[in-house]
């Protein structure tokens, strides 16, 4: 369980929040603090006050994969296969094993055509897919995705969801503006400019948002609303 208590960081304040294992969607308007919450959970920034613990441990003590919302900020290496291999190389895993694992994950994602490409020359969506593979190759316990799907078409999102499902990550926390996607998650957190407003299953959260544009489009067709 991810436990957040009395958290304060700049404008974001959360008194109490528990995130169970599974796939959690973080939704809400631009500027409501979604990225800040994700970065706090990932341990990339430290709260001004309060605490975050993950299964009783501090953030940063647990292997975490993170995909930044700015595609260019994810890329470090010249070639795609070096980028995807990097987390394994940094851990000192043998070259043979690293190449095997990188090759396997690239093939599973059907992205072999990108392997030898120059990272900086990829499209925004391709960079995002590479960032996702880089984040999951070391099988992190926590996978944090910051609006990565905004750079992807429907089919690529579907492929990405398959990749995410097969990572075995205990916690997947995904910020998204795609409400049809959020509706398929195990739980949803809704933040507004006033802070954390709603938490619960998709049914629980979206039932309170039916009068807003945050209600999933496919559910509107289902409901005839």
């Amino acid at each position: 369980m991810i436990d957040i208590s009395n958290l304060i960081f700049r404008d974001l304040a959360i008194q109490k929040l528990r995130i169970p294992p599974g796939h959690t969607a973080v939704i809400g308007p631009n500027g409501s603090g979604k990225t800040t919450l994700l970065r706090l959970i990932a341990g990339l920034i430290t709260p001004s006050a309060g605490a975050i613990s993950i299964d009783g441990r501090h953030t940063g003590e647990i292997e975490t994969g993170f995909v930044n919302e700015f595609p260019d900020r994810n890329i470090l290496f010249y070639r795609v296969e070096d980028e995807i291999s990097a987390p394994l190389r940094f851990r000192g895993i043998s070259c043979r094993k690293t190449l095997e694992m990188a090759d396997a994950i690239i093939r599973e994602a059907d992205l072999s055509y990108l392997a030898t490409r120059i990272s900086k020359q990829l499209s925004g969506g391709e960079k995002t897919l590479v960032a996702l593979l880089t984040a999951v190759i070391s099988s992190p316990r926590i996978l944090i995705l910051d609006e990565f799907d905004s750079h992807l078409d429907q089919e690529s999102i579907s492929i990405s969801m398959d990749i995410i499902e097969h990572t075995g990550a205990e916690y997947v926390i995904q910020c998204t503006q795609n409400m049809d996607l959020a509706a398929c998650c195990d739980q949803v957190l809704y933040l507004s400019e006033k802070g954390l407003q709603l938490t619960g299953t998709p049914e629980e959260v979206f039932s309170r948002l039916i009068q807003t544009c945050f209600y999933p489009g496919l559910w509107r067709i289902r409901d005839g609303t």
Binding site: G28, N30, E147, H151
Partner: peptide, 13 residues
């Protein structure tokens, strides 16, 4: 080029 990416639903509308 992708004018809607990163916007919330209100911004997209």
């Amino acid at each position: 080029d992708e004018p809607f990416s990163a916007l919330d639903c209100r911004g997209k509308m």
